[in-house]
Write a protein that binds this DNA or RNA. Structure first.
Lengths: 232, 232
DNA sequence: GCGCTAGCGTGATGAACATCACAGACCGCG
DNA sequence: CGCGGTCTGTGATGTTCATCACGCTAGCGC
């Protein structure tokens, strides 16, 4: 079980779990049950009524997506080791609004909602931590809405790429290898335009290609594009 | 102080305050200080670093807006009596990301963050209530993002109107009387197109005009448009 | 009354982007 | 090796919407 201690050591920075006191976190994680997923396997399906658990990624990566009214797939996020997924339905016990599938072979922990709530309410520090973290999420989403409204294609794709770079990799490798269609569904634009933009950026040395894989060369450029749009 | 009891009686349904136990709520509200605002007066400014209080609307209405990277105004929400505003920065003690001004002459209560947190952490029921309410907010925002991405003008304007109708009014009056420019900033489209759409809808009997004021005649139509888009 | 301003209606133009169509390129698998 | 699938590049076309440009109206102060 030393993967568990590993996990606690490098929990993702922006996750709800970080808000819990360390001792409670450890108890919580030891109570959870482990599960392995094949690539493409679904663990949460949009529309499920019984959303009484959340999922912690141990290894691999999950894709969170939903199908829009028009029938198009929208990818909301990719989650890697140390991140918590499905906590919204767990907290408000509503139906699942998105589907979660394994992007690559993965192993996860299943956290029943009661277990999580017990840990979260155990001390005032944990309570305030969880509330703070939830508030941060709301803040983040507000920014996304604002940028979605006003940004054009390029900044949106830039934001998608920035969210996908592997922070541990020096040469700007991505954490996953999405197809251009996936990138489009993630950034909210058509597959053809992903292709056109990437070619352009490759010519300018902003991204590079190594076989299938995409490398982000000029992270700073993409970052400012993602943050301020192309009018800045 | 009977306005206070009034307020407690008809708190807005989707507000964080609802999550608190009634006795704590009353204590909390009695500790808050009251303030009156003239129309157009600003109570919270985007960029303020000391976001250590939230605001409860007693009478009137507040407009929550921000300025986008391109310099355009974006109206995020209108809040009426019984609603809580500014709770995000209060909870995560980050900077203010939006500006709050009085849309009409209003009176509000100022809730210091410490006061709110004490009430929220007082009992496990309150804690779970607040978490549930925050989670609901996140869920709501995810839906907004999804629809913003895929919806065209008409559904977006429909959603704006649905959010503005006065639930207490039988004839579909709005809670405020926004100009077409404001409606555009709220729904994310150009003023001219607001004009065109409203004319079209008026011809179809979906909305009506009484002087300046707008009346929503076919609420159900707008509702389904807002929810499923124009492909349904 | 007269001007003055904020808000409205509506056509013409253009930019941004989705969609369509098709031609390679790559890759596993028999 | 060849063959079918999925992924990719790139032009042509069309839609959707913002933008520009203007004239109109309705208050409102004087």
């Amino acid at each position: 079980m030393d993967t568990l201690d590993d996990l606690i050591g490098r929990l993702a920075p922006d996750t709800l779990l970080r808000a819990l006191a360390p001792d409670q976190l450890e108890i919580l994680l030891r109570k959870a049950t482990r599960r392995d997923l094949r690539a493409g396997e679904t663990i949460i399906a949009q529309g499920d009524e019984t959303g009484d658990f959340a999922v912690v990624v141990l290894t691999g990566g999950l894709k969170i997506s939903m199908v829009s009214a028009g029938g198009r797939e929208i990818i909301l996020n990719y989650c890697g080791p140390g991140e918590l997924v499905g906590e919204i339905a767990m907290l408000d016990s509503g139906p699942r609004t998105a589907t979660v599938t394994a992007a690559v072979p993965s192993s996860v922990l299943i956290l029943p909602s009661r277990t999580f709530l017990d840990a979260a309410t155990a001390s005032p520090a944990s309570v305030e931590g969880v509330m703070r973290e939830l508030a941060r999420r709301v803040r983040q989403l507000n920014l996304v809405i604002e940028s979605d409204r006003t940004f054009s294609m390029a900044p949106r794709l830039a934001r998608a790429l920035v969210r996908l770079v592997d922070p541990d990799s020096a040469d700007g490798r991505l954490r996953y290898h999405p197809s251009q269609s996936d990138l489009g569904a993630f950034a909210g634009l058509a597959r053809e335009n992903v292709s056109r933009l990437l070619s352009e950026w490759e010519a300018q040395g902003i991204v590079a290609r190594k076989g299938r894989a995409l490398l982000v060369r000029d992270h700073a450029y993409l970052q400012t594009l993602a943050e301020f749009g192309d009018e800045a």
